[in-house]
Amino acid sequence: MQNPDTPAISGNSGPNGQWFTSSTSRQWWFDSGARALDFAYTGAMGDNPAWEKLHSPSDFAQWLEGRFEASDGTVSERDLTDARGLREAIATIASALSVNETPDLKQVDVINLFAATPDVPPRLAGGGMKAGRTTVRTSQALSSMAREAVFLFGAEQHERIRECAADDCALVFYDESRSNNRRWCSMQRCGNRAKVRSHRARNAAR
Results as ranks from 00 to 15, higher is better:
G33H: 04
A170P: 00
Q157N: 07
V108T: 15
E159T: 12
R200P: 01
I93K: 06
R67F: 11
T81E: 15
A166Q: 10
F30K: 04
A141E: 03
R197T: 12
T138D: 01
M145L: 15
E77H: 13
A204W: 04
R123F: 02
I111Y: 09
A155D: 14
W184E: 10
D38Y: 02
V196K: 11
Y174Q: 09
R35W: 02
I93Y: 06
S143R: 09
G73F: 13
A96Y: 14
L86G: 04
G191A: 11
Q188W: 02
A205P: 00
L142T: 00
A141K: 02
F20K: 09
T81S: 15
A8L: 12
G43Y: 03
P15Y: 04
A83N: 02
G154E: 07
P122L: 04
A70W: 12
T24S: 08
A166T: 09
E69I: 03
N12M: 05
A89L: 08
G127W: 03
R182S: 09
D47I: 05
R26M: 06
S23W: 07
L142P: 02
E156R: 13
A205S: 12
A61Y: 12
N181L: 13
T6W: 13
A201Y: 02
F68P: 00
R162C: 11
C169K: 10
A170W: 03
N16H: 05
G191P: 09
L64R: 05
P103G: 07
G73W: 13
G191K: 13
R183W: 08
L86K: 09
E176H: 14
Q107K: 15
L37Y: 02
A204K: 15
Q18A: 13
E69R: 14
E148W: 00
T135M: 07
T74Y: 08
S32I: 05
D72M: 11
Q188S: 11
S71E: 05
I90F: 02
T134M: 11
A201M: 10
S198M: 10
F60Y: 15
S71H: 15
P15S: 07
